[in-house]
Amino acid sequence: MRLLLTTDTHVPKRARSLPDELLAAVEAADVVFHAGDWVDEATLDLLEARARRLVAVHGNNDGPALRARLPEVAGVEVAGVRFAVVHETGPAQGREERCERRFPDADVLVFGHSHIPWDTTSGRLRLLNPGSPTDRRRQPYRTYMTATADAGVLSDVALHRLPPRSPA
C-alpha cells in the first residue's frame, strides 16, 4: 500500500492552496494521513474527494466545524501496520518514550504541529512528522512524506522537498 503523510496545511492562512505536487501524490496514494491544522473545511473536502482513503485528525488551529468532523486521535491498521495519528505530541525532549506510553498499540505514530520533519524509532514505535507542505517555518523546505506498508512492515519512508513557491 502506498502511503502519503502530511500535516499543517494551514490553508488559506499560510498558502492559498495545496501544492500541485502534493495533490498528485494524494491521488497516487492508497491511503493519505493528515495530522491536523487544516484551518479550513475546503481543504478537508478536497482531500476527501481526491484520496482513496483518508485518515485524519484535527489540530490546535482547527475550529469547531473541523473538530466536529475529525477526531483528536485516529487509529487504523494498513497492510498489517498499526498507525496512530495525532496533531500534538509535546516537547521534542522525551517525545519517543512519552508517545510509546500514550500509544501502546501502535507501530507508527504520524504527528504534526511543529512543521519540523521527524523520523525516529524508540523501542517498538516509529514516529513520523512529515513537516508542512505550505509553511516551512524554520526549515529550508516545505515537505511531506511517502511510505509503503506491506505485510506488517513499513518501508520506503521518504521525505519530499517541495520547490520554492513562485512569486505571485
Rank of each mutant, 00 (worst) to 15 (best):
V76E: 15
T7K: 04
T120W: 02
F33Y: 10
D107E: 13
F33H: 05
G90L: 09
P91T: 09
L125F: 09
G59I: 08
E100Y: 04
A149D: 08
D45L: 02
P117D: 00
P167K: 06
V110I: 15
A74P: 12
T120P: 00
G36L: 04
R53P: 00
T9M: 13
E48L: 04
A68D: 12
A24H: 12
L154P: 12
R137S: 05
V26H: 13
A15M: 14
R52P: 01
V78Q: 01
S166G: 11
A49Q: 07
L44K: 00
T9P: 09
K13V: 15
P133A: 03
D40Y: 00
H160G: 07
E97R: 13
R14C: 12
P140D: 11
N129C: 13
E100I: 04
V32S: 04
E96I: 10
H58M: 04
T120F: 06
G94P: 07
E100G: 07
G152L: 13
R102V: 00
R124N: 11
G36S: 06
A29I: 07
V157G: 09
H34Y: 10
E72C: 09
S114L: 04
D45K: 01
F83G: 05
D156I: 06
R14S: 14
V78I: 14
D20I: 12
V32Q: 02
E27S: 15
L54G: 02
L23K: 12
E72I: 05
L128T: 06
A42H: 00
L66H: 02
A149M: 12
Y141L: 03
D20L: 14
A84L: 04
R165A: 14
F111V: 04
P64Q: 05
Q93N: 02
V11G: 11
V11T: 13
L127P: 11
V76G: 09
G112H: 04
E97G: 08
P91K: 08
C99A: 14
V78S: 05
F111G: 00
V57K: 10
G112C: 07
N61Q: 03
N129W: 07
R102G: 02
R14L: 13
L162Q: 10
V85C: 02
P167N: 06
F111N: 07
M145G: 08
V108W: 12
T146W: 13
N61C: 10
L18Y: 15
D40W: 00
R82V: 08
F111A: 07
A106I: 14
P117Y: 01
R52L: 02
A35N: 01
L3F: 06
F33N: 05
S17I: 09
V73P: 08
A92F: 08
L109V: 14
R14K: 15
A49D: 07
G80Q: 08
T6Q: 06
A51T: 01
G112T: 05
A147W: 13
P133I: 06
D150M: 11
D45P: 00
D8E: 10
L125M: 08
E88P: 00
E48C: 00
H34D: 03
A24S: 14
L46H: 01
D119E: 10
Y141F: 15
E48R: 04
T7V: 06
P64Y: 02
